[in-house]
Each structure stands twice: as C-alpha cells, then as structure tokens.
Nucleic acid binder design. Structure first.
Lengths: 270, 270
DNA sequence: CGTTTGGTTGAAATGTGTCAAACTTTGTGG
DNA sequence: CCACAAAGTTTGACACATTTCAACCAAACG
C-alpha cells in the first residue's frame, strides 16, 4: 500500500489544534497568550484510511502530525520482514514529534483505523517553541512520556510471558484512553485484529488467539470486532503486573475508583 | 545494596562539563556564549562504585547526572522480581535527563562498572535552557535518541531470537563507543557479565552462555573479562540485522571503513 | 450469495527456561 | 605469593512456552 501522499480532495483545508491544546493543558497551566499561540498554529487537517502509512522509516519530514481521531501505530520491520508494533497512538498524541529534532525517521507510523490527523509544519512548531519556552517544555515532556512507554514495552517483551504482555497492553490502552475520555466505563474502541496484537506483543497470531481465549475464559474482558470491554479491572491489572507510574498520569486521573491497588514502585517489599 | 547517597569524602567537589560539551557539539555548532554557558554549569562530581543505584524508580530527583567515565544501565523489575535492563549508558550520556520534565522516576539507573559522574541541578539546567534555546534543542534531541534506542530494543526483544539480539546489542555498543572514541579498532571495555547481558536481551543466563559460545565459535568476537573485541564486524552486523539509522549518527562517524553495508531503511526491497 | 477477512483448532517442531552441579577465573587477606 | 573465598562460566538433562503449518470455520462485506 502506498504511503500517505499530499492530502487530496477528501481533505478539509484546516482544523484547529484544540485536541493538542487539551493535551498540553492536562499537565500545564497555560496563559491566555500561550493558548492563543497554540490555537494560531496553522494545522492542515486530513482524513486517512485504515492501514495507510503516514510517515515511513527513512523519510525526512518537514512536518509532524497530531492524531485527532482514530488509532495509529508506530512500527518497524526486521530484515527478514517480521513486524514489531512499537507504540499504539490515541487521539491527542503527536506520534512523530521526534522528527522535529531528528531529521531521519527511524520508524514508520501507520493508521490502525480510519483517522483524522492535523499536520503542523516544523517551522511553525519551532517558532512556537522559541517564543513560548513553557510550551517547549510541555512538548518535550510529551516525547519523554512516549519514551517512558517504550521503556515499559522493553520490560514487557523482555520479562513477561504472553498472557501478562497482552493484559499489560490492554491496561495501558485503557488508561491512556481513559485520560482523554475515550474509555469511560472501561469500554473503548480497539480496532485491532489478532494479527496486529501479535505484532505488538511479540508473539505469533496463533498464540494471541489461544491467550485471548484464556483471558476471556477468566472473564477479564470482552473483545469483539473493534470493541473492547474490561470486565474485571482489578484482576486484569494483577495479571498484567501493571503499574501505571510510567504513564505519568496524576493518580486521580486513573481508572479504578480507588479500590484498585496498583503495585506501585514500592509495592514489592525491599 | 543501598542507593547512592550524598557524595562522601571520595567526592571531588567539582568537575567541568566538558564531556557533556563534547556530546552537544557533535551535532550542533555552538557559539562562544553557548560554550561558556555550558562550561559555567555547576557540576558536582562523584565517583561511584560498581553495582550501585544512582537513582531509583519512584525517586523525585532535583538533579540529573552526566556519565563522565564508566558504564551504567537503566533497569526495571517486574512484580515477581525479574529484571530487565532497558538501556546501557556510555560516557557522555545523561541517563536520567528525563527527570527534568517528569517528576517521578519510572526506572532505576545503576552502575555496571566504577563510574565517575557529574550531578547537575535541574534548576541550573532550566536556566541554561531558558537562556539558550539551541541548547534546549540539543538536550531534547539527546532524549529523543535515547527514545529511539528503546524503540529499537522493542524490535530486538519482540522479533529477533537470542543470537541476533545478542549480536545487536554488541553492535550498538560498538557504534556508540566508537562515536566517543572508546572503540577504536573495534575493541572496547565491556564490563558486563553473562547474567547482566541476559537481563539486557531478555533471555536466561544459561542461554546467554550457550549463544555466546556459538557466536564465539563463528569468530565474530572475543569477550573475556571486561574486554570485548569484534573480529568480524561485517558478519556481526549481518547476524544482528543491525541498521544504525536509529542511533542518528552521521554516516562518516560509523565504524567499518566503507566496506560494510548496513541494511539501511531501504535495503529490503519494496 | 460468494468472497474476503479474521478467528479457531490440532499436532508436531523448536527455542529457550530451569535446576543443579562442576568447573574456572578473579580477587583478597594472610 | 600462596590459599582460599567469591564471582562468574560451563555442562547436561529435562520441562515448557511458544512457533509453525495446515486446515477449517465464522463473521463481515459488497
């Protein structure tokens, strides 16, 4: 499938940066002036179909994009064609923000579902950063959280077995979607098939199938079509060995009404 | 073992930030003023023994540190006590720079060998960044490269088998050390034992032993004590499926005298 | 309604883990 | 400089999680 080229007729010429703004304001109190500056960003909106690459390994982009609606993922191939999904992106993310400072893409980003995205030229972002140091900090922070997530994935792939890996990915998705209001009631869109999940947790599609049945049998969640519903959050967290610290979300933004005990950095005795 | 506390008598009270400076200048031309600003940073030097934690998961540091000499690593435990080494740090790195913008550490950093480090208060870094936007960019870039490295580790752990994983880690170490002049002639310090290597590539120590013997038998490298010597770089790169793009090192800074063909982002036919 | 996409199953092959013991090297104190 | 302890490496036998292959089935789709 060809990569995403310049937006065609299906593209609305402009969009506002409000999802981006919402994201930044979640952790940082912005002044009027800063808010205006973000909203003044020239954003080129585009709708992109499922399973289309937006940027590819080797590209040298002059713009980044904010994911406004839908799901995307970052991935990479080994020399013999095995794909690893390295991150899943949810609305509000800026999946290729790193290209602002790293000229060559070392990964590809593609859509998992139909998406709405907003492209922003690097020049515009650079001006924004120069004039608003606190926004620089907030964007930098975004890239640091993305980095924290890949670090956790390293742990997940390196040390946990398939059932935990899978539960862990689901926990992460739920929390991140919860934060942006897309997983109220522990239900969410999850437009991924078993093969894609397999590429994300580093196991074969067949094994994903078996593990899924197992977890389903334990009544941890329902997953059908593009919809996911967690039935037993506390237990899922336990199976996943999930500690949300790495997501750097304030504690009161986490799902689980206070009854769920996350392992926590000090939960495993000294 | 207790974490690293306030530097004791073995600590020389100050050090200069020149290794840090060298790193920044590698990709960015700094002005006199910028150079002076970096050198003026108050750096508190300390010598730290092998196998000591410098920062721990859950900490809320008010400073970061530059690794001046020696090897360190970032790691994390699962709930049942399995350790994953998430990154290996070489001189010039700032392993916990993320704490500048993320208040709580989501990983630990510890020494692999005796190290010399230089602590820098976050306040000082923040002032530096405010006054020198290009230095902000360079530091941000450093964190982005660290992120790119963990992404590659995700691929490595998720899709490659033990022999490739191991070869890949060695290739990465060689390139990163080569860049800072510590792997001339494809030899370098590698103060890691088989158990630690196991934690880094996500396999058991026993299996590391077997795989090592295998790769050694193929005359790819010698590894004895704390010293590593690559005997067949081209072949090692091949076994590792190693494409150094993700390290974001200019091509002419790579080892291999031009005869080595790295797979490259487009080396696998489209 | 047929075609495509995605899910499910079983049996056999395999890479890696585990355990426990022996061996070798390195470091250290007498 | 030796002797001993500690740390690290090597081995074998066996267990097990996961892969592979191939077939079949079910649901979604146009």
């Amino acid at each position: 499938m060809p990569p995403f080229e310049h937006p065609g007729t299906s593209t609305s010429p402009q969009a506002d940066a409000s999802p981006l703004l919402r994201r930044l304001r979640a952790t940082l109190h912005l002044t009027e002036r800063e808010i205006d500056a973000v909203l003044a960003l020239p954003v080129q909106a585009a709708e992109i179909e499922r399973h289309v690459d937006i940027v590819r390994e080797g590209d040298r982009p002059t713009r980044s994009f904010a994911l406004l609606e839908g799901f995307a993922c970052t991935f990479k191939f080994t020399g013999d064609g095995r794909r690893q999904i390295i991150a899943v992106h949810v609305p509000g993310d800026i999946p290729d923000l790193q290209s602002l400072h790293l000229t060559t893409m070392d990964v590809s980003v593609g859509t998992l579902s139909p998406c709405k995205v907003g492209f922003i030229q690097h020049d515009a972002l650079r001006v924004l950063c120069e004039q608003h140091p606190r926004i620089t900090g907030a964007l930098w922070r975004e890239t640091l959280i993305a980095a924290a997530i890949s670090r956790e994935w390293v742990l997940n792939l390196g040390q946990r077995q398939a059932p935990s890996r899978m539960a862990h990915l689901i926990c992460e998705m739920i929390v991140r979607l919860w934060v942006v209001g897309l997983a109220a009631d522990l239900r969410c869109e999850f437009p991924v098939n078993q093969g894609e999940l397999a590429d994300a947790i580093g196991v074969s599609p067949v094994h994903v199938n078996r593990v899924t049945q197992d977890l389903r049998a334990q009544n941890l969640f329902e997953w059908k079509g593009r919809h996911l519903r967690v039935l037993n959050w506390a237990r899922l967290v336990q199976v996943a060995d999930f500690d949300p610290t790495y997501l750097h979300v304030p504690a009161d933004f986490l799902p689980g009404d206070g009854n769920v005990v996350y392992p926590g950095a000090f939960g495993r005795g000294a």
